[in-house]
């Protein structure tokens, strides 16, 4: 079985970055971490069949660099994300409350629409009746009273 080691300094990379970069290569190799000398971590790779040492080595080192970039802004990013999500939840609560106010079922809504229609019709017919007795022309529009 092909094996190799990379020694990484904790002065350049955090232990979390080393651990993550090692994890990313677990499709291609078994990876063991151990403390070497002071502030050094030994990363031992045992290759899985069909994979290339150089590819794994360079991918591991690239992941270390990438993780360093992420660590620069991770704390700020987490804090900002939490604020954004909190804000989003505030909005959804408002829209839910608005929806909850409608307590009628579809059937009841249809009945209500029917009732409103009936009342409107009754009002309309009453208006028609009243119009004929309207001596003072109160129900007529200005155009109806004064227009030519």
């Amino acid at each position: 079985m092909k094996q190799f080691d990379i020694v990484v300094s904790l002065e350049n990379y955090s232990i979390n970055a080393i651990r993550y970069a090692a994890y990313t290569q677990t499709n291609y190799a078994w990876v063991y971490l151990s403390f070497a000398e002071k502030a050094l971590v030994n990363v031992h790779f045992v290759m899985k069949a069909g994979h290339d040492i150089e590819t794994v080595k360079s991918a591991f080192l690239q992941e270390l660099e990438d993780e360093k970039i992420r660590e620069k802004s991770r704390a700020v990013n987490v804090a900002a994300s939490i604020e954004i999500i909190k804000n989003a939840f505030k909005n959804i609560n408002v829209s839910f409350l608005k929806e909850e106010k409608s307590v009628l079922t579809k059937k009841q809504e249809l009945e209500l629409d029917k009732l409103i229609e009936e009342v409107e019709k009754e009002l309309q017919s009453e208006m028609e009746l009243n119009k004929s007795d309207d001596i003072k022309h109160i129900t007529k529009t200005w155009e109806e009273t004064n227009g030519k």
Partner: peptide
Amino acid sequence: VSEMLDFGKLGLSWL
């Protein structure tokens, strides 16, 4: 960018 976040717009996208 951390200093110029539109919380309303980004929150809506998240939702």
